[in-house]
Design a binder for these strands. Sequence first.
DNA 1: CGGATGTCAGCGTCACTGAGATGG
DNA 2: CCCATCTCAGTGACGCTGACATCC
Lengths: 114, 114
Amino acid sequence: LSEAFTAEGVRGYHFRLLAALDQYGPSSQADLGRHTGIDESEVVATVRDLLANGLARSRLDSSDRRRNIVTITKKGSQTLERLDRGLAAVQDALLAPLSTKERHTLVRLLQKLG
Amino acid sequence: LSEAFTAEGVRGYHFRLLAALDQYGPSSQADLGRHTGIDESEVVATVRDLLANGLARSRLDSSDRRRNIVTITKKGSQTLERLDRGLAAVQDALLAPLSTKERHTLVRLLQKLG
DNA sequence: CGGATGTCAGCGTCACTGAGATGG
DNA sequence: CCCATCTCAGTGACGCTGACATCC
């Protein structure tokens, strides 16, 4: 499950932040925390990792100097794509015992829970 | 969810070990690890907590002096019962959005995955 | 000898708390 | 003054690895 993550030198937090950056575009760290549910104190360290690995870059918001606008890089997008493919493969293997109809039912029931 | 645990001064590992002791009776620590899926190195520390809190007691197996036979105490059983009731309440609240039929379906689908 | 048991030390991830500095 | 943002330090639970001594 996580061999794809360690192969990319990435943890779950990195993946979730990359996915949020890809989905919402350049975001402040506070927004990243809100979109991913990751605590602000964790976002700080995780963004720092992404910057160090060239998966994202950041600049100060000129109109609000508190904000750190984080943007995904091309390298980050490529890494995210590989992680997405690996995740899809793992999910397929995990859900293999279920038929297509059963998968839909499972998703529906789990969504009802929250 | 976990307020019932902290109220008893207990973590998930404590609960799982108490439940295993209640279900299987006096067990060696190795057996506890196998029954609960908790790593041996974690069983060691967790059993030590249970002993310190009077929730379990242990003695050496006279026929195999490597083994530590752990037994649940009356206090441990009472604590387990309270935890069980608290857990049942939380589960009921969590599954409230589902009908009885839907709960059965969910359990069946999840069992297929595991 | 090989294998099982118990113990210990350590690491990594996830999740949270509290505090502080800066800026709107 | 109040609030948002960012940063840092620390704690706890969970899960694992490697090592070691003891005993069967």
